[in-house]
């Protein structure tokens, strides 16, 4: 019975801690949701409220003022995110796998070679020149996908996940005469689902949230991804109030404050759809079962 009591204690602790943290994360989001449906004036005067004093969908009207454009932007974002995530995951997992192989002589050196890029950077300008002047990707979807494919972080995390796969699997497969790529594709990948799901999630999120690439590379409006389009709406709303635009004849006065919140809500959409899907891959015992089978 001792074991059971400790389980109860553990469960009580667990539920309390997780519930408290969850509330801390949920409350601000609720406030944003409520704010996005509030009247602009109320937000400026009183700040956040649990429920809107005056219900208003003005902010959403501003966001969706041009529905055709928003839908196009969704298309671009989804396209870029899917392609980027799949391709990025493939290259990341290959690299991670190679670096996790203990018999691969240069793994430490190459790990360092990759990690080094997170330490030093030449800054924005040379990177921009590379992509625009040498690769000629200005206003091209390639500029949205390729430069964000890999990150040293993801590769090293991947390597770490794959390190926990027993060497014996590779060894026995080799004895069976399987090629390196086959081992990776047929054996390692299926055993790495939690890792793949994690890195895939991170990649997906970074593509989904990326407005900066579009900001500097994309000049055609129909190629704007969703995040950039939304940030553009926000930035214009903010600039309309500053003195630079003093002489901009603006009879379009978007509700700048509630707009920020509506944008946050619109942007967070994917997690609600994507995350439960990813969670399916966080299943314990997958690894061991496969090895035994």
């Amino acid at each position: 019975m001792r074991a059971e009591r400790s389980t109860i204690v553990f469960n009580v602790m667990g539920y309390v801690v997780i519930t408290v943290l969850t509330l801390l994360c949920a409350l601000p989001f609720w406030l944003i949701l409520s704010g996005s449906f509030s009247a602009e004036d109320d937000i400026i005067r009183d700040g956040f409220k649990l429920f809107p004093d005056h219900f208003s969908i003005d902010a959403y009207k501003s966001v969706f003022s041009n529905p055709a454009q928003i839908f196009k932007a969704y298309e671009v974002t989804i396209g870029v995110t899917v392609i980027g995530t799949v391709l990025g995951l493939f290259i990341t997992s290959m690299a991670g796998y190679v670096l996790s192989r203990k018999d691969f002589k240069y793994r430490d050196k190459l790990s360092f070679f990759i990690y080094f890029t997170t330490l030093f950077s030449g800054g924005l300008i040379p990177w921009y020149i590379m992509i625009v002047n040498y690769l000629d990707w200005k206003d091209s979807y390639l500029a949205l996908v390729v430069p964000s494919l890999l990150s040293a972080w993801n590769i090293i995390l991947m390597k770490n996940f794959m390190k926990s796969i027993p060497d014996s699997i590779v060894e026995s497969a080799k004895i069976d005469g399987a090629g390196e790529f086959t081992i990776y594709w047929k054996l390692i990948l299926p055993l790495s689902t939690p890792g793949l799901a994690t890195i895939g999630l991170f990649l997906g999120l970074s593509y989904w949230n990326d407005w900066f690439s579009a900001n500097i590379f994309i000049t055609t409006e129909s190629k704007y991804p969703l995040q950039f389009l939304l940030y553009k709406i926000l930035a214009s709303a903010a600039v309309l109030k500053t003195s630079i635009a003093g002489n901009l004849g603006a009879d379009f006065k978007p509700p700048a404050e509630t707009l920020k919140m509506a944008v946050a809500i619109v942007v967070t959409g994917p997690i609600i759809f994507l995350y439960p899907f990813v969670q399916r891959y966080f299943v314990k015992g997958l690894t061991i079962g496969a090895v035994k089978g």
Binding site: P28, F29, K260
Partner: peptide, 14 residues
């Protein structure tokens, strides 16, 4: 599942 999703929300708040 629910709490895990909710804990992710702040990541999206600018």
């Amino acid at each position: 599942k629910t709490t895990q999703s909710i804990m992710f929300l702040p990541f999206f708040i600018s």
